[in-house]
C-alpha cells in the first residue's frame, strides 16, 4: 500500500517558540496511524499541519513539506479549502453546530455544492458512524440534544459526508465515557478499510487497540515510529520504553 502523507523536514513555530523539530515520517494509506506522547509534545500541532488548520491561527509558521498523494499541500497554489475538504477532521471536544442532526451532516455537502440526494447521503453517513438507529426518528431535532458520545459520532458522520480521503482525529475520545469510547474505537476499525485515519491520543492502550502504526513524539521531536505491535513489544528507543511503561507522561 502507498503513502497518504510524506512529511519532510517539518518545523512549526508559534511566534518565537518552536513546537515541532524537523519531523520526517510517512503515513500509510488506509491504515490507522496513532500519534502518541505526553501532553505538549506537539502531536496535535502535527495533526493540524495535515489539513492546514494552522492557517487560521495568526502567528503560526510552518516550514518543510507535507506531501499529500505526492503533492506538497503548503505550495502556494494549493487551496486550503480543497485540502480541508479532502481531509476530514474530528476534534477533541464534540463540536456539533447548533442546528438539527440532519443539517449537521448535510453541512459539508451543501457548502461544497453537492447536487445528489442529500437524504440518502445523510443516512449513509449516519449509518457509517453507527448513529443511524439512535437518531433516525428525530433527524430534525437539535444536535445539542444528543449525548456527548452521540455528538462525537455525529461529528464523525459530518466529516464523512464530504467523502474525505483521510480522517484526522484529535483525541476524539478524551471527552467520552468508556462505553462511547469503545463504540468509537470499533468504528475506527471499521472505517480503516476505506479511509486513511490519523489518530492523536494520549491513551497508549487506545493506540494499542486500534492503530496499525504508531509514532511517538516527545518535546516536539519524532522519537520512534513503526508497526504498533512491534513498537509496543520492542521499543527501539529508551525514551519510548520509558513512556510505554508509564515512567513519565
Amino acid at each position: 500500500m502507498g503513502n497518504a502523507f510524506e512529511i519532510r523536514n517539518l518545523n512549526v513555530y508559534y511566534g518565537q517558540h518552536q513546537v515541532l523539530y524537523d519531523v520526517n515520517m510517512n503515513i500509510r494509506e488506509r491504515a490507522v496511524t496513532a500519534i502518541i506522547g505526553p501532553s505538549g509534545c506537539g502531536k496535535s500541532t502535527l495533526l493540524r499541519c495535515l489539513n492546514r488548520m494552522h492557517d487560521l491561527q495568526p502567528g503560526v509558521r510552518v516550514t518543510g513539506e507535507v506531501r499529500f498523494k505526492g503533492r506538497n499541500i503548503y505550495d502556494d497554489d494549493v487551496d486550503p479549502m480543497e485540502i480541508r475538504y479532502r481531509i476530514g477532521m474530528v476534534f477533541q471536544k464534540p463540536n456539533p453546530f447548533p442546528k438539527s442532526i440532519f443539517e449537521n451532516v448535510a453541512f459539508g455537502p451543501r457548502i461544497n455544492g453537492y447536487r445528489g440526494n442529500l437524504n440518502e447521503l445523510v443516512e449513509r453517513c449516519l449509518r457509517q458512524a453507527a448513529l443511524w438507529d439512535e437518531v433516525k426518528d428525530r433527524l430534525h431535532a437539535s444536535a445539542l440534544s444528543l449525548s456527548g458520545g452521540q455528538q462525537q459520532r455525529l461529528c464523525l458522520a459530518r466529516a464523512l459526508a464530504v467523502e474525505p480521503e483521510v480522517i484526522l482525529m484529535d483525541e476524539p475520545a478524551s471527552a467520552l465515557d468508556p462505553i462511547s469510547t469503545a463504540k468509537l474505537e470499533d468504528l475506527i476499525l471499521e472505517l480503516k478499510s476505506r479511509y486513511t485515519i490519523v489518530l492523536v491520543t494520549h491513551n497508549m492502550q487506545q493506540a494499542g487497540r486500534v492503530a496499525d502504526e504508531t509514532a511517538f513524539f516527545l518535546n516536539g521531536r519524532l522519537i520512534e515510529m513503526g508497526p504498533t505491535r512491534e513498537m509496543f513489544a520492542n521499543p527501539r528507543e529508551k525514551k519510548t520504553e520509558e513512556y510505554l511503561t508509564g515512567r513519565f507522561g
Partner: peptide, 14 residues
C-alpha cells in the same frame, strides 16, 4: 491506486 480512490467518489468538486 491513490487516484483511483479519489476518482471513485461521487462528490468531486469541479
Amino acid at each position: 491506486m491513490a487516484n483511483a480512490v479519489a476518482e471513485g467518489r461521487d462528490l468531486r468538486v469541479s
